[in-house]
Write a protein that binds this DNA or RNA. Sequence first.
DNA 1: TGTTAGCACTCAACTTAATGGAGTGCTAAT
DNA 2: ATTAGCACTCCATTAAGTTGAGTGCTAACA
Lengths: 344, 344
Amino acid sequence: MELDERKLKILQAIIRTYLDTGEPVGSRTISKYSDLKLSSATIRNEMADLEEMGYILQPHTSAGRIPSDKGYRLYVDTMLEAKESEVNSLREEIEEKAGKLDDVLKQVAKFLAKNTNYATMVSAPRYQTKHVKFIQITSVDPEHLLVVIVLDNNIVKNKMIRVDAEVEEEMIVKLNFILNTTLNGLDLVEINLVLIQKIKEQMGAYGAVIDSVLDVIGKTLVDEEDPEIYTSGATNILKYPELSDKSKAAEIIGAFEDKETFHSWLGLPDREMNSDTHDIQVYIGDENHVDSMKDCSMVTATYQIEEGVYGKIGIVGPKRMDYDKVVGTLNSLMGQLDDIFKEK
Amino acid sequence: MELDERKLKILQAIIRTYLDTGEPVGSRTISKYSDLKLSSATIRNEMADLEEMGYILQPHTSAGRIPSDKGYRLYVDTMLEAKESEVNSLREEIEEKAGKLDDVLKQVAKFLAKNTNYATMVSAPRYQTKHVKFIQITSVDPEHLLVVIVLDNNIVKNKMIRVDAEVEEEMIVKLNFILNTTLNGLDLVEINLVLIQKIKEQMGAYGAVIDSVLDVIGKTLVDEEDPEIYTSGATNILKYPELSDKSKAAEIIGAFEDKETFHSWLGLPDREMNSDTHDIQVYIGDENHVDSMKDCSMVTATYQIEEGVYGKIGIVGPKRMDYDKVVGTLNSLMGQLDDIFKEK
DNA sequence: TGTTAGCACTCAACTTAATGGAGTGCTAAT
DNA sequence: ATTAGCACTCCATTAAGTTGAGTGCTAACA
């Protein structure tokens, strides 16, 4: 059977209506609503075909039809209208909270949740390559050394370490020199035991301090592997009856709470992305790789802070989410984010 | 009417049973359950009295009784058994994740939520007095200066600032010297325009850099005002039918998401606390100052990291929460936290 | 005088049956 | 190819009945 123009139009009408109401939609509704001048009987025939083809389904005999995952998929792939959304306010909202990236991302999550009425999450960028650019150790007071590490992407980490006895100024200078010359430009895997041993030898009695320092460096580099995720509007899920069933809702909202969940699949763009399109992806129902999301749809987009530094944004809602609006908002948002990051 | 021993025992039995089942409890149940050897009829008489006194109430005629807020209050104040809970695992669980305070607190929130099956939040400590202890400026690369600020509680903050032209080594040394001698020991309000002007004069052409640096300092000190709050187990709320009504649940879980909510009332201990008791407080129903929590109970405790540095822990659940267990767990937890912080 | 057995009464919760209506599939007419 | 018409299905809603846990009251009892 072929999916001709008319069938497509009817399918589109069905999905549109369903997105609106969340109720199964019947032939009569379509007959009246859509601009095709067809009787309900004709629509019924077409619907039967569409059902056979797997684009729509009936919750039970004598009910209207609802889109299947396959139907949604077709809709998203071919029928989205590129409606330009007006997301102008965001820019100002974000910029007044200037400051750190964390804050910006938190704002973005909040903004999206508020605007779309779905649940959102934003992953902080994951830096692919991390090399030590600069290390500095300072004596803050007799009992504490401060270790500051700058990575080659200008991320700064610091940690206090406690020492038993004051370390002489002279030793600190030496320590700084050795660490910087030895470790500069290296990444985590390149700092191996041989190297560590070599440094320790040079420092003689202060070998113990070295251990602490290297420990900090190790933690720092590993730490970066683990990007922060900001979420907002998880309770929006409760607004959609088809998801607000107690056990489902708990599972979904729980997933938002336990941010670990997202790491695996929100982590990195699957493939080299075209930085113009922002790689907006839609996952419908079973297309989600996580069980707890199989009754939801999720739209993700990738943003870029600088060369090789990506983060992701995800929006989770019911399968009947307003894809038009979400994709539009996301698109417009990405553009503004680009601008913001370019300025920095 | 007087609240004699027997009435108290009956009330206690009622509350215990209700905490268990969540169902209104009838006279017959009590007559069988409790060790007082009384017939249901007698219990009924006493119940009528207890109701008149306001300790229990009937959802409707011909239903059993449930505790009123006043009843819970009496129970909590006088009838809690000091059951020692076995919270031994926590210590290890936390310590292997050693590291930063943030991580510890996150762990604590998670641990509590998992153990109690209620929703929990932990506020990071708020430092009352913040003075600059140490400032260090370093040239990381020709375009970037790194500003590191250590506060007197050993909190470290850092920020990169971009400069148009490389700053000479000599100037940086001078800058460090001036900043440290001038600002050491001062807090935010003490750094005023007069002082700023004075510093600028000394730095001559590098006045602009000073601005950036002071900006960072300002942001750092203000930032600390705003304590982080870690939450966990918000979805546990959905486990209790009396709270999992859609609108209620959304309100409560939403409150957990929007952490701002808690600042006002989770902020600081109300009064000078006895560091032994950890100031465990129970708020029942309307006793909560926040509307969205009026159907819940909340137990809070205060922990101390060092002299004058407090944080709070809160557990939110249904009014029929297992106060015994919560207070016990909290108590035991606080002890362990004390130990952990003492070590540091 | 405090306790208890007994009984009539109440009321939410559950069960069952009846009704209505939205929607379908099929057939025959256009 | 399209449509009007009709019989059929099945969910949702309502109404009526049934059940059972629980109460309050009274009268008997120790």
